[in-house]
Design a protein around this nucleic acid. Structure first.
Lengths: 241, 241
DNA sequence: TCAATAGTGTCTTTGAGACACTATCCG
DNA sequence: CGGATAGTGTCTCAAAGACACTATTGA
């Protein structure tokens, strides 16, 4: 007999659960941090985890990621990008759980954190000092996210998510240095960022101890040409590029 | 009350189905092709689709991809890489289905195709002449796979999957040209591939109409340094790179 | 004036691309 | 020899990196 919409039995196959997890980065005091939540329930009660949760049937994966992130941490209104899907059969003791991981980057100072009934604490951790042992396979997820972040940075505008409306070129350089984990040449950075033509000078300056610094903003109105700035051309993705 | 393994109710959340789909490429007669199966059941009966199917509860995503691919097409023993996870709520009329897509590349001549009870035909299509309308959102999946293939090619060994054990440098260049869809300079190609140090000369030559050509193979024993060759440095991923 | 920070100029090296040249086979 | 294909050498140009230099402030 031919199968149709009427005869299709949706329960024929056993189904896994699907979650979304969001690895969200920021820079605080010049250091790269990741947002983690402290789990208050089994499994992994008392362990830190990346925020996330089960998807609803009527929302897209990205919508689910946004919803979970806001529910668990209060963070909202951010740029999200799909990272990878983790699906080892034993990665969650409850049942078969497949996790679609997302990556994001925000300014810490515009986000107000709060906890939910799922978690008893929400906190930014420096990437160099994460908790010993994370829930589930979240060490893998975070380290994969970190490597993706580093390679993405070179050709996207991700770093700009971390800056206020106006900023100096050396502040932008500093963000790049934090994320890449290495120092960059000042002159070369000035040259490249200016050649890229993505900044627009403002009339503002900021005064400090030495010579005052010019402030810049991103060009609005870039037409439809894609907004891309790569710091370097010569870096490899680890895997999923 | 605290939840534990004993009290956890695995059926509390409604679950989506999860499938894997595999976009598999080859070069036939110098032209890039994709493997498609003709669906014999509702939904999209009579439409071409990328091979794939529902995952089992006890296998990893990649295992599921391999199993489905072999069941539906007979293709096996290949290099697979995760591409992206597609999860729009309405992408499948049966029920909520999330699809984890994989990408692969093989030599057509070593694969024996066969059909299954799911499909009534299995066939290689040139990427320039795909069927009008594919099942589900498979147009999106294929075009995303194609863009990934093109950008990946520059820094992986993917092209080598398409060559026999020994081959000439100009044959390798030809594969690159097919996949990238543009022609490359002979001298520059020789220079780069030799500098990369990933080929090993054999004592073999192949005779043809003109000067005979030296044959090469990939260096075995490359230690643990990663096996990477980029054709160029200056290409962007469209998105997920 | 000096310390401190901002910003510029320039030399060297590297690598991509273009393209002309040489090599070796068959007939 | 000439046609066909394999393979090399070399010039130019652009981008990356190193690093020295100048500029502008406050104390």
């Amino acid at each position: 007999m031919e199968e149709t919409a009427e005869t299709y039995d949706a329960s024929r196959y056993e189904r896994p659960s699907v979650t979304v997890d969001v690895v969200i980065f920021t820079v605080i005091n010049g250091e790269l941090h990741v947002l983690m939540v402290l789990r208050r329930r089994w499994p992994y009660e008392g362990y830190w985890a990346v925020p996330g949760g089960f998807i609803n049937m009527d929302e897209s994966l990205e919508q689910a990621a946004r919803r979970e992130l806001e529910e668990e941490t209060g963070v909202r209104n951010i740029y999200l990008e799909q990272l990878y899907t983790f699906g080892s059969p034993q990665r969650d003791p409850r049942t078969r759980v497949i996790s679609v991981a997302y990556i994001a980057i925000v300014r810490a100072d515009v986000q107000e954190l709060h906890v939910s009934d799922e978690s008893s604490d929400v906190r930014w951790f420096p990437v160099r000092a994460l908790p010993e042992k994370l829930a589930f396979d979240h060490e893998d997820i975070v380290s994969y996210a970190l490597s993706r972040l580093r390679s993405k940075l070179e050709y996207t505008t991700l770093a700009f998510q971390l800056l206020p409306e106006v900023f100096s070129i050396l502040e932008l350089k500093h963000i790049y240095e934090q994320i890449l984990g290495e120092s960059l040449d000042k002159g070369n950075f000035y040259r490249k960022i200016k050649e890229a033509g993505i900044l627009e000078e403002t009339s503002m300056v900021r005064e400090g101890r030495g010579r005052p610094t010019r402030l810049w903003r991103f060009k609005r109105d870039r037409g439809d040409k894609q907004f891309v700035f790569r710091w370097r051309e010569d870096r490899l993705d680890d895997e999923n590029g």
